[in-house]
Every structure is written in structure tokens, then in C-alpha cells.
Write a protein that binds this DNA or RNA. Structure first.
Length: 203
DNA sequence: TACGAACACACTCTTACTTCA
DNA sequence: AATGAAGTAAGAGTGTGTTCG
């Protein structure tokens, strides 16, 4: 008996990102590629390739000494944007209507909220990730509970089997008639002779 | 078929904020 | 009450895979 027979879930698919929504293209982005940093322009580190800059991150808190010397304004720390409650509510409403955006929707939202389209895009991206995370957590809890229930059930069945086995071992073949005799009776009935023969069960 | 643009997602980092000793 | 460390939430950057023209 396999314990996982009843545990076939879709969690693995979900975790593995098995569901990949097909992209609905509604047009090309007209902004140039480097416009993605328009909101928080990266520091001029020296190289132009953004991907090269990946590991050249902005200074950590422990390295603030050089970041603090912003005399020329060249090392100004990125000011993290916090969306207002109104903006968040608007985005949430929008998200409940559609979890993905086309270009027009993104631009309209950005215009209405007075933020960059890139920010709208990032917010939706993070929002989808959070939704998926919550869903995964829910599935995990559900599966965990199911597993616990099955373990409990399995334990009961094992105990039942043990009980049956112990009862079975208390039975033995009657040497005279070849039939099983219950130990509780202490004898078996020999029908053909219509008499009782004492039998002490072994075992 | 190859290619590039646009996009989604996973992973990660960073910053702002909260909690607690 | 002040404060600093640890924890958390969320905005943002980057790499990669997919789709489509």
C-alpha cells in the first residue's frame, strides 16, 4: 500500500511554474530600453551595459561612507518610493479586474496615478508574485493537513492489521479435523463425528 | 528559420518601516 | 523614553525563457 496514492496534487505544477500564461501582445513598447531607469537613474559606474552593472550594486549600509559623500550629487542614494494609500487602492482595484496589463492599460494607470509606467509594471509584477506565494502557502497548508490526516488514518489501519494478526496467530489448525479452531473456544467441532475434541491452540 | 522586441517570472537586493529587548 | 538590532514588507534590478512579428 502506497501512502501517497491519495496525495496527488497539483502543487508541483504550481511551484514549478507549470502554468505559463500566453502573452498577449498589444503593441511594442515605444520607449527606448534604457528608459527603464528613468525613475531612479543608476549611478554612472563606468560601463554602459546594465547587465554588467548587476553586481555593482549600490553601496550597502556598511559602505555608506562613500555613498554619503554626495557633494556632487553623483552618489545620491536611491529614494525608495512608497505608494500612497490611494494609489495602492487604485492599483488593487485594477489588479482585481485584471492581473496583467497591456500597454494601454499600463500607460493609463500610470497617467492616472502620476507615476511611471515602469512602476505600474513592477507593482503588478510583484503583486502577482505575492498572490502566487500566498496561493502556494495555502496549498502547502492544505497538503500538510491532508498528509497528517492520512498518517493518522494509516496509523489506525496499521493498528487494526496488528490486531487482526494477533487474533489470527491465536488460531491454529486442528490436528484431527484440519480446520481452524478458535482459541477462545478451546476446541473445534468435528461435524462428522458430532463430538467435541479438545484442542489447545498453539502459538 | 533566425532574430529582436516585449513581456512574465524567479531570484535577489535594497530601503522603509515595525517590533522588541 | 531612547535606541539599536532583527525582522518584515514592498519597490526595484537582473537574468532567463517565451511569444510574436
Amino acid at each position: 500500500m502506497r501512502v501517497d496514492d491519495g496525495c496527488n496534487t497539483n502543487l508541483a505544477l504550481s511551484l514549478g511554474g507549470g502554468e505559463f500564461k500566453s502573452n498577449k501582445r498589444h503593441g511594442r513598447e515605444e520607449t527606448p530600453p534604457n528608459n527603464r531607469f528613468a525613475l531612479f537613474p543608476r549611478h554612472q559606474v563606468g560601463e554602459g551595459d546594465d547587465r554588467v552593472r548587476k553586481r555593482l550594486r549600490s553601496p550597502s549600509r556598511s559602505e555608506d561612507s562613500e555613498a554619503a559623500e554626495t557633494g556632487d550629487g553623483k552618489e545620491a542614494r536611491r529614494k525608495k518610493l512608497r505608494l500612497s494609500k490611494e494609489q495602492l487602492a487604485f492599483l488593487e482595484d485594477s489588479f482585481t479586474e485584471h492581473s496583467t496589463l497591456n500597454l494601454r492599460q499600463k500607460q493609463e494607470l500610470a497617467s492616472q496615478l502620476k507615476i511611471q509606467p515602469r512602476q505600474v509594471e513592477v507593482w503588478f509584477q510583484n503583486r502577482r508574485a505575492r498572490t502566487k506565494l500566498k496561493q502556494t502557502e495555502g496549498e502547502y497548508k492544505s497538503l500538510k493537513q491532508r498528509c497528517e490526516n492520512l498518517s493518522e488514518e494509516n496509523q489506525k489501519l496499521m493498528e487494526e492489521i496488528q490486531e487482526l494478526r494477533s487474533r489470527n496467530s491465536a488460531l491454529a489448525m486442528c490436528p484431527s479435523c484440519g480446520q481452524r479452531a478458535a482459541a477462545s473456544h478451546g476446541f473445534c467441532v468435528k461435524k462428522e463425528q458430532n463430538s467435541r475434541s479438545l484442542y489447545i491452540a498453539g502459538g
